[in-house]
């Protein structure tokens, strides 16, 4: 960790962060990779968060114990344990080939969305569980419908926990490599993606490429360290934000 930090720090500059790679990625910056990662985050979270939150509401507030609930929870557990490379294969077969999106930002973002869905559902469920049952009773006893109770009382109280879950999901999306490698990440692109059907570069795959398959691997070590550090910084800061939000609200809840 320290080594990555020290070596990476010296490689980072404004140009490194804002320029295109040059000379077959032996010089220049990682701007397109950063941008690609941001697109992926926005796209996949845009799908996964609403879907995950709604699922969690169903599971916690509506579903009665029984076959349906068991089946859904079994599926979530298994999706959570399914290797990312399998999601990649699925994305390739379903989005790239069957639905005809081609190797693209869209296919990758959807694949990643499915992959983080279990994380979002679980953390949202945890957030809903911590909302005291008394709030629900109080609202129902005032002659308020179930859905309005959830929207007006339960959700506002659960939002911090759900945000934590979403942020953890962001960290996961930013760091995943295998699924995008199969569904749309480009080895090298001389331009930025211009539509959701474009291929794109992304930080983790870029790191993999320049560390294992680039031209002149040993001479480009500084760039590799720099890329690793940027990636690490994004993922870790995102995670730390999530962890501290959670702590803050847990403490508040205890008081």
């Amino acid at each position: 960790m320290l080594q990555i930090f020290l070596n990476g720090y010296s490689a980072i500059s404004i140009e490194f962060l804002t320029e295109m790679p040059r000379k077959r990625m032996t010089e220049g910056g990682i701007y397109p990779a950063i941008l690609g990662t941001i697109y992926l985050i926005v796209g996949s979270m845009g799908v996964a968060v609403p879907l995950g939150v709604l699922s969690a509401i169903y599971l916690n507030e509506y579903a009665q114990p029984g076959k349906t609930k068991w089946l859904i929870e079994m599926a979530i557990n298994n999706l959570a344990g399914t290797p990312s490379v399998v999601f990649g294969l699925f994305g390739l077969a379903m989005f790239v080939k069957y639905m005809g999106f081609g190797a693209s930002l869209l296919a990758s973002a959807l694949t990643l969305a499915l992959m983080v869905l279990p994380i979002i559902i679980r953390t949202s469920q945890e957030a809903l569980i911590t909302v005291p049952e008394e709030y629900r009773y109080a609202s129902l006893a005032l002659g308020v419908t179930k859905w309005q109770t959830i929207r007006q009382v339960v959700l506002p109280a659960a939002i911090p926990g759900m945000i934590t879950g979403a942020i953890l999901g962001v960290g996961r999306v930013a760091g995943e490599t295998a699924p995008i490698l199969l569904t749309g990440a480009a080895y090298f692109l001389p331009r930025l993606p211009d539509s959701i059907y474009s291929q794109f570069m992304a930080l983790p795959y870029h790191l993999y490429v320049i560390a294992t398959a680039g031209t002149n691997i040993s001479q480009t070590r500084p760039i590799q360290y720099g890329t690793a550090l940027v990636l690490l910084a994004i993922v870790l800061s995102v995670n730390m934000i999530a962890v501290s939000i959670r702590r803050h609200y847990r403490k508040k809840l205890r008081n």
């Binding site: 960790m1 760091g175 995943e176 490599t177 560390a211 590799q224 990636l231 690490l232 993922v235 870790l236």
Partner: peptide
Amino acid sequence: AGIPSVVYGFFGLVV
């Protein structure tokens, strides 16, 4: 748990 696997890989590769 949050460190991306590719960073682990990179660390493994260079260290």
